[in-house]
Design a protein around this nucleic acid. Structure first.
Length: 555
DNA sequence: ACGAGAACTTAGTATATACGGA
DNA sequence: TCCGTATATACTAAGTTCTCGT
C-alpha cells in the first residue's frame, strides 16, 4: 500500500467510511428476574412487598450498599427521586424517606449469589464460558467491506444507578433499561438487516456510510448518544490510529517554528493573542488537554487548559531557589488531580500576573480564549493541527528520547524491559495518568520481598557449595549459582518496577499516545520479543505497526 | 460564523481469566 | 491440582473534535 495514496485517501475523501456493512445488532441486557419471596424489603421496620418495577430499582441500590457513595447526600437524593418515579402510587405515598428503607436482605442475597457463582463446579463454569463464546461468535463480529471485523462493545449497557467520576451532580440517578425501540441500526442497504427481538421494533434502520458505528441509542443521564463500534484491531480504527501518529510526526517537523511563534506572541499587544500563546505553551510544555467549556451542574467540575480558572494557579516569584514558579492544582478529566510546580519564562509569568489581575478566584484565567479559537489558530499554523496533537507528539517523542537514553545494549532482557517501562513511565507522568494504588499493593510488595530473600538465601547456599566442591564439579556448580543470580536479578528488577509504578498507570499512554512503531523498532533493535511489551490484545491493535516498523524507524 | 449535537478518542476501575508456586 | 495473586479484558464515563443546520 502506497503511503501517500493512503494518506490522501484519508484526508481528501468525501468522508465515506465503508461500502458494505452487515451485522447482527446488539445483545440486550437480560430481563429483570424478580427476587425470591423470602428476600424481603422493609420500610420503617415493616415488611413491604414491592412492585416489580420498584423492586428492580431497589436491587440496584442494594447491590451498591457497600460502596461509600451510597452514603452521599447527592447520590441518595438523586436515587430516591428516580426510584419514586418507578413506584406505584401506593408505594409512592408510603415510601417517603430513604433512611427508613432497609435493603439489607437484598444485599445479603446478592452477596450470597456472588459467592455461589464463585463456588460453581468446573462444569457449570465451562457452560457459562461456552455460552459467552457462542454469543461472541454470533454477535461479536460484523462484515465491513469484505472483512470480518471484531465489534468492541456488542452488549447494550444494562440498567443501573449512574455513578459518574468525582463529585458528579447526577450520581445515583437511574440509568434506564434500553429497549429495541430505543435502538438505531446502521448497516448497508444491501446487507441482511439485524432482526429485533420477537414482538419488538427498532427505532430506525439507517444506511449512513459516512459514520463508523453500527448501533446507537440515547442515554437518559446526559442525553448523549452511545454507540456500538468496532474493535481497535479493525481496519477502520487502525487506519485512524496510524493517521493520528502521522499527524503528530508532521507536527514534529514544524514544532520549532510554532514554538518560536508563540514565544513571539507572548509580547503581542493584543490580550487575546497573549492568552492564546500562553495557553499553547502550557499545552505544549505540560501536555495539558484543550479544556472545553462544560455546562455547570451537569457534570463534575473539572477543567483543561483553556478552562483553567484563577483559583487553579498560584504564582511564586521565587520558590525553592527557582524563579517564576507556577503552582498548578486542579481537577482534570475523570476528576484526576493535576498538581505541578513549574518554573516558567519571566515573560509567561508576567503575562499570568496580568491575566489574573482584578479577577475573582472563580473567574476564567483565559477570558479571551476557548478551544475553538485555539484550534482555529492551530489550523492556520499547520493543516489538521489541533490541541490534542501536542499530547500525542510530546508523548511519543518523550518515549523515543527516553528509550535512547535509558537502554544499554549490554543489559539483559529484564533490565531492558525495566528501561522500557521507565521510558513509558516518564510519558505517563507527563500526561498525568494516575491510578489508585492497588488494594493489595503493600501485600504484593511484601510477597515479592519474601521471594527475594529466599532467593538470596539460595544463592548463599549455592556459593558455599561451590567453594567446597571438587574441581571437576566446580564448573557445574558455578553455572548453578549464575542461574540463581539471574533469577535474583529478575526479581529485584520486578520489585523496582512495581514500586515505581505504584500510582502510575502505563496502559493509557501505551494504548493511546505512544506511536507503536517506536516500540516495535526498539524491540527489533535490542532483540526483545514483542510479546514482552505488548500482550495479545495490544498486538492485535498494533498489528499495522508490527508489520510496518523496522529497527531504524524514527518517529 | 457559530453553536449544538454527533461522532469518535481517551480514561480509570471493576471483573474475569490466566498463571505460577505450594 | 488447587489457590491466591497478577494480568487481561470489559465496561462505560468523560473528554476532544467534527459536522451540520441556521
Amino acid at each position: 500500500c502506497d503511503i501517500r495514496t493512503f494518506q490522501s485517501s484519508l484526508r481528501y475523501t468525501d468522508g465515506v467510511k465503508w461500502k458494505f456493512l452487515e451485522h447482527k445488532g446488539p445483545v440486550f441486557a437480560p430481563p429483570y428476574e424478580p427476587l425470591p419471596s423470602n428476600v424481603k424489603f422493609y420500610y420503617d421496620g415493616k415488611h413491604m412487598k414491592l412492585s416489580p418495577g420498584a423492586e428492580e430499582v431497589a436491587t440496584f441500590f442494594a447491590k451498591m450498599l457497600d460502596h461509600e457513595y451510597t452514603t452521599k447526600d447527592v447520590f441518595r437524593k438523586n436515587f430516591f427521586k428516580d426510584w419514586r418515579k418507578e413506584m406505584t402510587s401506593e408505594e409512592k405515598s408510603k415510601l417517603t424517606d430513604l433512611n427508613k428503607c432497609d435493603f439489607s436482605e437484598m444485599s445479603e442475597y446478592f452477596k450470597a449469589q456472588s459467592e455461589a457463582r464463585k463456588a460453581m463446579t468446573k462444569e457449570e463454569k465451562l457452560k457459562i464460558k461456552e455460552e459467552n463464546e457462542r454469543l461472541l461468535q454470533e454477535y461479536g463480529f460484523c462484515i465491513m467491506d469484505n472483512h470480518k471485523e471484531r465489534i468492541a462493545n456488542f452488549r447494550i449497557e444494562p440498567p443501573g444507578l449512574f455513578r459518574g467520576r468525582g463529585d458528579h451532580p447526577k450520581m445515583g440517578m437511574l440509568k434506564r433499561r434500553i429497549r429495541p425501540e430505543d435502538i438505531i441500526i446502521n448497516c448497508s442497504k444491501d446487507s441482511k438487516y439485524p432482526k429485533p427481538p420477537p414482538g419488538t421494533k427498532w427505532k430506525e434502520v439507517r444506511h449512513d456510510n459516512k459514520v463508523t458505528w453500527l448501533v446507537s441509542w440515547t442515554e437518559n443521564i446526559q442525553g448523549s448518544i452511545k454507540y456500538i463500534m468496532l474493535n481497535p484491531s479493525s481496519r477502520i480504527k487502525g487506519e485512524k490510529d496510524w493517521q493520528k501518529y502521522e499527524m503528530a510526526r508532521r507536527l514534529k517537523k514544524c514544532v520549532d517554528r510554532i514554538r518560536a511563534q508563540y514565544r513571539e506572541d507572548w509580547k503581542s499587544k493584543e490580550m487575546r493573542i497573549r492568552q492564546r500563546a500562553v495557553a499553547l505553551y502550557f499545552i505544549d510544555k505540560l501536555a495539558l488537554r484543550a479544556g472545553n467549556e462544560k455546562e455547570e451542574g451537569e457534570t463534575a467540575d473539572t477543567v483543561g487548559c483553556c478552562s483553567l480558572r484563577v483559583e487553579h494557579l498560584t504564582l511564586h516569584q521565587e520558590m525553592d531557589g527557582q524563579e517564576y514558579v507556577v503552582e498548578f492544582d486542579f481537577l482534570g478529566k475523570d476528576s484526576i488531580r493535576y498538581y505541578n510546580k513549574v518554573p516558567v519564562e519571566k515573560r509567561v509569568f508576567k503575562n499570568l500576573q496580568l491575566f489574573m489581575e482584578d479577577k475573582e478566584p472563580e473567574d476564567d484565567l483565559f477570558d479571551r480564549l476557548n478551544t475553538s479559537i485555539l484550534n482555529k489558530h492551530l489550523q492556520e499554523l499547520m493543516d489538521g493541527l489541533t490541541a490534542k496533537v501536542f499530547r500525542t507528539y510530546n508523548a511519543s517523542i518523550t518515549l523515543q528520547q527516553q528509550l535512547n537514553e535509558l537502554t544499554s545494549s549490554e543489559d539483559n532482557v529484564p533490565a531492558k524491559i525495566l528501561s522500557y517501562n521507565r521510558a513509558n513511565r516518564a510519558v505517563a507522568i507527563l500526561c498525568n495518568h494516575q491510578r489508585a494504588p492497588p488494594k493489595t499493593f503493600e501485600k504484593s510488595m511484601q510477597n515479592l520481598q519474601t521471594k527475594i530473600d529466599a532467593k538470596k538465601e539460595q544463592l548463599a547456599d549455592a556459593k558455599r557449595e561451590l567453594k567446597s566442591a571438587k574441581a571437576d564439579a566446580k564448573v557445574r556448580r558455578d553455572e548453578k549459582s549464575k542461574k540463581i543470580e539471574e533469577q535474583l536479578m529478575k526479581l529485584e528488577v520486578q520489585a523496582t518496577d512495581r514500586e515505581e509504578n505504584k500510582q502510575i498507570a502505563l496502559g493509557t499512554s501505551k494504548l493511546n499516545y505512544l506511536d507503536p512503531r517506536i516500540s516495535v523498532a526498539w524491540c527489533k533493535k535490542f532483540g526483545i520479543p514483542i510479546e514482552k511489551i505488548y500482550n495479545k490484545t495490544q498486538r492485535e491493535k498494533f498489528a499495522w505497526a508490527i508489520d510496518m516498523a523496522e529497527k531504524d524507524y524514527e518517529f
